[in-house]
């Protein structure tokens, strides 16, 4: 257990979306197989170092997904899970939907990065439904993505538009997955979730003690494990596969 006062404040300002995406990208190990969720997590791909050989999975049935395709490069048979036209990379493979989700559910992907409405301190994720009365339920691959990869990272703003923290003791929104999130990247801090405790790895534009006053979660200082403490060396560690 480490004190909150040991959490480094690594930026004077809160991170914008691009800086969050860059930070996530820097933490993805070389050689990893990764699924980036639709929306904000997709930005992470812009900051992946091509030298690190990270392979992107898109759940409609492709490994080795390249960047978005434009103009004459658009092929209607080549789209990602967000139905955006994309390009191949050398080494691309295609497979049917059941294989694609088996690959995910079977724990073969190293990291999945998702957006969230709420994350609870025990790792519960809510990102598919606000539970609003009369809303038409639509889940897509969210529940499969949440629990499938070896590690599930969330990228989100720490607070909703009305200022309410989205990192909570227990989710009020309908759950997507139980205890599945291991790390949360926000504009104000990076949190690591372990054994029901939230460890603040680093903060941006705020001190960890102030976060502790704002958030209704059990907050502690950084996890004392090698390789997760800061971002400077994480990008060059060897992948798990």
């Amino acid at each position: 257990m480490s004190a909150l006062s040991t959490t480094p404040r690594t930026s004077d300002n809160a991170l914008d979306r691009e800086a969050m995406a860059r930070l996530v990208a820097e933490d993805i190990p070389a050689g990893a197989f990764v699924n980036l969720g639709i929306g904000q997590p997709t930005k992470v791909s812009n900051y992946l170092d091509p030298e690190h050989g990270v392979t992107l999975h898109t759940e409609n049935g492709m490994l080795g997904m390249g960047p978005q395709a434009h103009d004459e490069d658009i092929d209607p048979d080549l789209i990602n899970a967000g139905k955006i036209p994309v390009k191949e990379t050398p080494g691309t493979s295609y497979f049917h939907h059941a294989d694609s989700f088996a690959m995910m559910r079977g724990g073969h992907l190293d990291i999945c990065v998702l957006g969230a409405f709420q994350v609870a301190q025990n790792g519960d994720l809510a990102n598919w439904s606000t539970g609003a009365p009369g809303a038409i339920p639509a889940v897509g691959g969210a529940m499969d993505l949440a629990i499938g990869a070896k590690q599930t990272f969330v990228m989100m703003n720490l607070r909703s538009k009305d200022g309410t923290p989205k990192l909570v003791r227990e989710c009020d929104f309908p759950l997507t997955g139980v205890g599945c999130v291991s790390r949360v990247y926000t504009d104000a801090a990076v949190f690591e979730l372990a054994d029901g405790v939230v460890h603040v790895r680093e903060t941006f534009g705020i001190d960890a003690q102030d976060l502790a006053r704002e958030l209704d979660v059990d907050l502690q200082g950084p996890l004392d494990t090698e390789g997760t403490g800061n971002t400077s060396g994480a990008g060059t560690t060897t992948g798990t596969r």
Partner: peptide, 24 residues
């Protein structure tokens, strides 16, 4: 949306991977 709200179509929502695996 219109048919659903009018109660004229039944909906079964299945997580995408479960849908694929059920078919498989």
């Amino acid at each position: 949306d219109e048919k659903y709200r009018a109660g004229e179509i039944e909906l079964e929502v299945v997580p995408q991977g479960n849908l694929a695996e059920r078919i498989r």
